[in-house]
């Protein structure tokens, strides 16, 4: 168990954490306002990847155009889902919306299955994105770096949006207390729509990076990362974007450390480990590691 070994798996953990982080940001922005565990978030991500794939491979569009078009379409899909499946439930209990999101998730997965089949399809990025670098025993690719950078950009952009813009402040108000916000004249529907648009758009970018890193896409690809993003949000502290990112890195690193350091007969327990980690955090810090004790958005 040399130092360089531990260093390599740490880097692997950071790479995985970056992927979780970028999914978790989009996840938290919706969760922070609606308190909705959006099981369908991961599936919007998958839809976005498939759209990119179709535009790139079948329509022959350049990659940037495909991504932008996919973001636009997915934002539309996200808003449509919000309008049809979530808005009518605005006054319902948390569990009802949870079920609704579960149904939407099943719906999207099965539609993808019907359109594209269950076969895993290769998702190849242009060479310069997957170009690898080696420092010592540590390997990484351009896409790893880009993931880190985009995560940081998202974080800063959202921070500015939430603190400097009118709609951002309205979002924070809704997240604190939706009823009070409505009384203050804030259009809650508008705020939720903006959150969904941002969340869905980010989901596509996250999906692009996820599929690019693992080079494949299939209809149920997004479900597990979606769940892990939720774990990350819980561990970091619900409502805190920075917390969600931190939680994602914690999950990524501990997951890989667990798989890399435990005896090999336990490596297959790694998903169980992540969920247990979340339960333990919930028990001792119900507001997450970085959530404020009052449960407010930081």
């Amino acid at each position: 168990m040399t130092l360089s070994y531990i260093l390599t798996i740490l880097v692997s953990g950071l790479k995985l954490g970056a992927i979780y982080a970028i999914v978790a940001i989009g996840y938290s922005i919706v969760y922070g306002i609606l308190r909705l565990i959006n099981f369908a978030h991961g599936d919007i991500m998958t839809v976005g990847i498939y759209i990119i794939l179709v535009l790139m491979n079948r329509a022959g569009l350049p990659i940037y155009v495909s991504i932008l078009a996919s973001v636009a379409i997915s934002v539309f899909v996200g808003l449509l889902i919000e309008r049809l499946a979530y808005r009518p439930l605005r006054d319902a209990t948390e569990e009802t919306t949870l079920i609704s999101s579960l149904a939407v998730s099943a719906l999207l997965q099965n539609i993808l299955l019907l359109c594209f089949g269950a076969q895993r399809q290769p998702f190849m990025l242009p060479g310069f994105l997957t170009q690898g670098h080696t420092i010592g025993s540590v390997n990484f690719t351009n896409i790893n770096i880009i993931t880190f950078i985009i995560t940081a950009i998202f974080l800063v952009a959202l921070f500015l949006l939430l603190s400097k813009t009118k709609i951002g402040i309205a979002m924070r108000a809704c997240s604190e207390n939706m009823k009070a916000a409505r009384l203050m004249g804030i259009s809650v529907n508008k705020v939720v729509m903006v959150a969904f648009a941002i969340g869905s758009g980010m989901a596509v970018i996250a999906g692009f990076l996820l599929a690019g890193e693992y080079k494949t896409v299939y209809p149920s690809l997004g479900f597990v990362p979606g769940l892990k993003a939720f774990c990350a949000a819980v561990i970091g502290g619900i409502g805190s974007l920075g917390g969600a990112v931190a939680g994602a890195f914690i999950i990524g690193v501990t997951e890989i450390l667990f798989a890399g350091l435990m005896p090999t007969s336990y490596t297959a327990y790694r998903d169980a480990f992540v969920f247990l980690l979340m339960v333990v955090v919930l028990l001792f810090r119900p507001n997450g590691l970085f959530g404020s004790t009052k449960g407010e958005r930081s």
Binding site: M1, T2, Y5, T8, I9, S12, K15, L16, Y214, T216, V224, I256, L257, F258, A259, G260, T264, S265, T267, A268, R270, D271
Partner: peptide, 22 residues
């Protein structure tokens, strides 16, 4: 020499690979 495991659905094998190489 070494037996390692995973469950289908994991798409990240980095931990297993690093252990193998180590």
């Amino acid at each position: 020499t070494l037996e390692d495991h995973f469950s289908s659905g994991d798409y990240d094998f980095s931990a297993q690979i690093q252990r193998y190489l180590a």
